[in-house]
Design a binder for these strands. Structure first.
Lengths: 392, 392
DNA sequence: ATCATTTGCGAAATCGTTTTCGATAGATAC
DNA sequence: GTATCTATCGAAAACGATTTCGCAAATGAT
């Protein structure tokens, strides 16, 4: 055994091995009851090697350069009144010189605010939701907030996983639009109980008690249906989404109200729930066309299915709008492209996103701001797919 | 003056006022040279009020509950081999019981990795870029990375500001697609020098030395042009974006190559740069129609302008494709809706996003992974807007 | 000149983790 | 029965900011 002296009592006789810890031989001095490991110069070098290991300049670097304390630097850069103008300019100039950028992580850790919003949204490859996100992003970034997004792909599983991923203290608030599949909301309720501000938009569930941003579901449906009626239609088929969706329910409600107003009999056979797939749309339209009294109009709750309907009717050589009027809901860009152009209700997706973001930001900034539900006003857009000579 | 006793020497005579600090009267004992402020019970209560002020359970909470140290808890939850199976299960069960979720901020602060990617993208209300983002988001979230986005709105100013906002240690890497306006890239180079992994996609600049993900700009343009030539077109107008854009240059190059291959003379009057606005597209088309030998085809670098072109031609009662063929580039959904349906080159936007994300993630995970440029293969889609009887 | 106040700055705690280095008790080897 | 290992765990230093409390010097008042 090589001669090893105890760093404390300087003796060597009393030193004996004491196991190996992390590949290093340890020793033990019986005399002074002291355990130790032999290091070369590592102890010194380690301290010196990382003045600022990240490469970024920190408050400490500035403090050293200027010759003040870290607290002073922090206050100077935040324009705290306690700091004299002289030191402020000195610190700020050095800060600029060293290209100082505050570490947002550290700031957030102590501030307990990340200036980041989370968005859970069904998808992005669709203009419809992408536009909402666009609105959200604009308002947020203008307020100095980042936006992190998650697509649920209309799958409940993915949605739940996303919520988890977002929620580890990384966001100050959540904007939530649930997937088509989602019908239970425990994953959201948990976060709500944690005290994270949440706002729902477009597709909402009243089961979760948050402020909501709606479009004019019922009123819009009324306007569209009334318009179709005014165009002379009496057998109006309505293409709804899955029945558990609130937007399905409310728009159906509007459809009913309009029919009732004009004393047109309700026919359950004219109400169809689809999953927005081409196949389901086609089969619903087929059914309607083969009724004893076939449809003379189709009102689709989504522009996408409305466009599919027009394309299908054209393929069947059924004239739109002469034989069958078609109207959609949402006002997507494709409605302007299809021929005939699509009559629809502009729900103003971008505005929905903006309003939602504003609502959430208000809640975040003003803790006790009253946050009422918001309904974004839309308007009917009449185009060729429903314009026809009135049968009066 | 009310009688105030020095908390140290218990005397009252020697105490005198010593200024007001933060709204509180301070005192000074001449005898024991001690400054002090009178607090009520605040000192005690403050300590007790925040065992875990955030409301979230922390490692410390678990440590206390189990009766071990914080380090042990951390290691147990990370499955460190040093911890015995017994304590692991104990800790994990308590952790679950207390609904522990690690604070990602604190983790990132010490780990120096946020598991977050930044995206700078021209816009989102367009299917084109939104689909790319969708691809990016999918790949990222599958790899356990969050995505934070910024729209530049094709404004250079906004882009620069966005980069700043993203970069404060909050992201592990950046996916970058520059705005239409951008022609200087200092804001990106700075970040590159800081050592942040960056990948450019779609619109790229070789001035910034990063791996890039391209679509088949040149080859795609060749395919489209050759197709138009094969359809009998000899006067093919090409609608480009701003001239400084690489995609403009490379697609023009492809256009030239195809024309040369078929020995068709190049006419500079047939080359137009537009800003993708309706007005600029219309005026270019107008010019072409009034040439001595007018165009018999329009090849637009973007589907959007191609659709605008078709609509405009239809309005002018010029037959597509009989009089003028139209082809686009990109394959947006609207191309399937317009009548006649649009011939275009599918650049596979979603795949571009995915490939870019994968490239970046590889760089992040494998520090020294070789990162070559990637070109995403696309393919020509021939539709009615260019299908006509060949003039041979 | 004496006392009170204001001004300007520093020390240290804190946020919630990870990680390094140490330490001890029981197991094992000689 | 020692002398060494090994298996487990703890203390404390990071990470980079903010913030509370404290104090000294300059300033003002009497």
């Amino acid at each position: 055994m090589p001669r090893v002296v105890c760093p404390r009592c300087e003796k060597a006789e009393t030193v004996q091995k004491s196991g190996i810890v992390r590949k290093k031989q340890r020793f033990y001095c019986k005399d002074c009851n002291y355990h130790f490991t032999i290091y070369h110069e590592s102890i010194k070098s380690r301290k010196k090697q990382k003045p600022n290991s990240g490469g970024q300049t920190s408050l400490l670097d500035i403090a050293k350069a200027v010759g003040v304390s870290v607290s002073t630097v922090s206050r100077a850069l935040n324009n705290h009144p306690d700091i004299s103008e002289k030191t402020k300019v000195a610190i700020k100039s050095i800060a600029k010189e060293l290209a100082y950028e505050p570490n947002a992580l550290a700031q957030s850790l102590v501030t307990r605010s990340t200036h980041t919003l989370g968005v859970i949204i069904p998808n992005l490859h669709t203009t419809f939701f992408a536009t909402m996100l666009s609105g959200i992003q604009h308002v947020s970034s203008q307020a100095g907030y980042r936006v992190v997004i998650c697509q649920s792909d209309d799958l409940h599983q993915t949605e739940v996983a996303n919520v988890q991923a977002l929620m580890n203290n990384m966001i100050d608030g959540l904007l939530f639009c649930h997937s088509l599949e989602t019908s239970t909301f425990d994953h959201i309720k948990i976060q709500l109980r944690r005290g994270i501000p949440i706002v729902q938009f477009y597709r909402v569930s009243l089961e979760v008690e948050t402020p909501c941003v709606f479009c004019e579901d019922e009123n819009g449906a009324i306007q569209v249906t009334e318009h179709l009626i005014e165009m002379g239609c009496r057998r109006i088929g309505i293409l709804l989404g899955p029945p558990h969706l609130m937007i399905s329910k409310k728009r159906l409600e509007g459809y009913y109200k309009a029919l009732n107003k004009f004393k047109i009999p309700l026919d359950p056979k004219l109400v169809a729930n689809v999953d927005f797939s081409t196949k389901s749309v086609h089969s619903s339209v087929d059914n309607w066309l083969h009724l004893d009294v076939p449809v003379d109009a189709v009102f689709s709750i989504s522009d996408k299915s409305a466009v599919q309907t027009i394309q299908y009717l054209k393929k069947l050589h059924i004239k739109v709008p002469d034989t069958v009027c078609v109207a959609g809901f949402g006002n997507e860009y494709t409605g302007e492209i299809i021929e005939p152009q699509l009559t629809t209700f502009d729900v103003r997706t971008g505005l929905i996103g903006e309003k939602t973001a504003k609502l959430l930001l208000n809640r975040i900034i003003d803790q006790n701001s009253t946050s009422e539900n918001v309904t974004v006003k839309g308007h009917l857009i009449v185009r060729d797919s429903s314009k026809r000579v009135q049968h009066l």
